[in-house]
């Protein structure tokens, strides 16, 4: 089986159309279970009381904000190296989703910070590097929008994304490299996670749900990109004409 076959927009478009409903349902079910477990079943935290429940959306969205960036930069690198159209479209589709996850992480973090730290915002290493990530996403989108030729726009944006990759380890290790107000990692430690299973499960289930959500929306956005970028191809006429 040749996997590159699926990278052809003509094959990808209908395939993604079939996959999207499945991913959407899986997202809905997973996030419903995660929310019920996080809001109803998980016990109260002995230090932070109920406020810690913000973690169940804050941490997965923060993870996703970094993962989506890596996907975007990798897709950009592949597009630069092999000039593959679908990976250009993948990078383009990633940017607004990654920016959204970053925004969720920043907003929920700020709201959580108020009762726990006494401030919505502090200029510490973790928060600042996450804010830089938001600007990288926005810069990627602005750069791409500012260049008319889609191939040149994709190349320029991919280079920006690749340069910005340096920020990802900075975000991850910021809580170790600098003295920050932000708490260190509890889940991704090399040793066993320092979080009780009753709190870990809703966190991981929501994380799975966010991954599925990303898959759903990235496919949706990529299909739109395919339509725009391939509009002069004859098969697009078939799709537009036959199926509304």
């Amino acid at each position: 089986m040749n996997i590159t076959k699926y990278a052809a927009p003509v094959v990808f478009y209908p395939l993604a159309g079939k996959l999207i409903p499945w991913f959407a349902w899986a997202t809905g079910i997973t996030l419903t279970i995660g929310l019920i477990m996080g809001l109803f079943i998980a016990p109260t935290d002995y230090q932070q009381g109920e406020s810690y429940r913000i973690m169940f959306i804050h941490v997965p969205s923060a993870w996703m904000s970094m993962l989506v960036y890596v996907v975007m930069a990798t897709a950009g690198a592949v597009a630069l190296a092999w000039k593959t159209r679908l990976s250009e479209m993948l990078a383009t589709a990633c940017a607004p989703i990654g920016a959204s996850f970053t925004l969720i992480a920043l907003i929920t973090g700020a709201i959580w910070g108020k009762p726990m730290w006494g401030a919505y915002w502090v200029w510490d290493a973790r928060l600042t590097s996450e804010l830089v990530l938001l600007f990288l996403y926005l810069g990627f989108m602005a750069l791409q929008a500012s260049i008319d030729d889609p191939r040149r726009a994709a190349r320029a944006a991919a280079i920006l994304a690749l340069v910005g990759v340096i920020n990802i380890p900075i975000i991850h290790f910021s809580v170790e490299w600098w003295n920050t107000l932000h708490q260190p990692a509890s889940v991704s430690k090399i040793s066993a996670p320092s979080i009780h299973p009753s709190m870990l499960w809703p966190l991981l289930i929501n994380a799975v749900g966010f991954h599925l959500f990303f898959a759903t929306t990235v496919l949706m956005r990529m299909r739109t990109e395919v339509l725009i970028r391939e509009r002069h191809k004859s098969w697009i006429a078939d799709i537009v004409g036959v199926k509304p």
Binding site: E50, I104, P115
Partner: peptide
């Protein structure tokens, strides 16, 4: 939510809003 209701619900509300926007707009 043990006095943290406004924080928790505004955080969850903001996240839900952004997530729904990411479905509706595309």
């Amino acid at each position: 939510m043990g006095g943290y209701g406004k924080f928790i619900w505004s955080a969850y509300g903001a996240a839900a809003f952004i997530i729904i926007l990411n479905v509706v707009l595309p």
